[in-house]
C-alpha cells in the first residue's frame, strides 16, 4: 500500500494515477478483511475500487489527463510541513494501545454491550448491521441525507445541462 501511495505522489499521468487509486483502495479492502472488518472491506471494494475510479476516469475524460510539474521551490515547504506533522504523529503513536490489544479503551465502553446484548435486543446476527441501523439509526439517517445532498449538489453543479445542451446545439445550428 505504501508503495502504491508513493507511486501516486510521483506519477504525472493522471490516467495511471486514477487506476493506481483503485488498486490502492483494493489493497485497503484486503487489509480490512485481515482485520475482521468484512462489511467495511465489502464497501471499500465496491466503492473505492469501483465507483471512484469510474468517476475519476469520467472527470479525466471531461478535462485533461496530463499534469504539469510543480516547481521545486513550492515543494520544499510542503515536504517540511509533512515531515513535521508526520514526526508529531509518530510521537503520538507511542501512546496508542498495541494492535489487537483486548483491554484497549475502545473495547471497554459500549462495544461489549453491543456484542453481548444485541442478540436479545435486536435478534439479528450481524452486529455491524444492528448497530448501524438500530443503535445508531440517527447517524445513518444523517449519512443518507449527506449522500442525498451530494447527489443534489452534483446535479446542480454539472448535471442540469442535460436538457439545455440540446437546445443550445439546436440554437447554434439554426443560428
Amino acid at each position: 500500500m505504501v508503495v502504491t501511495a508513493l507511486m501516486l505522489s510521483r506519477i504525472r499521468d493522471l490516467f495511471a494515477a486514477a487506476i493506481l487509486c483503485g488498486i490502492y483502495s483494493l489493497l485497503g479492502a484486503t487489509a480490512y478483511v485481515v482485520m475482521d472488518a468484512v462489511d467495511v472491506a465489502f464497501t471499500e471494494a465496491a466503492v473505492g475500487a469501483g465507483l471512484s475510479t469510474v468517476l475519476m476516469l469520467g472527470t479525466l475524460a471531461l478535462t485533461t489527463d496530463k499534469e504539469i510539474i510543480t516547481p521545486r521551490e513550492k515543494r520544499l515547504p510542503a515536504i517540511l510541513i509533512v515531515l513535521f506533522t508526520g514526526g508529531v504523529l509518530f510521537y503520538g503513536t507511542s501512546d496508542m494501545p498495541h494492535y489487537g490489544d483486548p483491554v484497549a479503551p475502545v473495547h471497554n465502553y459500549v462495544a461489549p454491550r453491543y456484542i453481548l446484548k444485541s442478540d436479545n435486543e435486536i435478534g439479528i446476527p450481524n452486529v455491524v448491521t444492528s448497530v448501524l441501523a438500530s443503535y445508531r439509526g440517527y447517524d445513518t439517517l444523517g449519512e443518507v441525507f449527506v449522500i442525498l445532498t451530494a447527489a443534489v449538489g452534483v446535479i446542480s453543479i454539472i448535471g442540469r445541462r442535460e436538457g439545455k445542451a440540446k437546445t443550445n446545439k439546436i440554437n447554434r445550428m439554426s443560428g
Binding site: 482485520m35 455491524v128 451530494a150
Partner: peptide, 30 residues
C-alpha cells in the same frame, strides 16, 4: 469478536467519502 463500532463508523464514512469525491470532481469539471 472484533469491535463492531469502528466498522459502523467507517462503513458510512466510505460511502460519504465517495459522495464528497464526486462533488469535488464535479467542481473540477466546472
Amino acid at each position: 469478536y472484533s469491535n463492531p463500532l469502528p466498522h459502523v463508523l467507517i462503513l458510512t464514512a466510505i460511502v460519504v467519502s465517495v459522495a464528497t469525491t464526486a462533488l469535488g470532481l464535479a467542481l473540477v469539471v466546472r
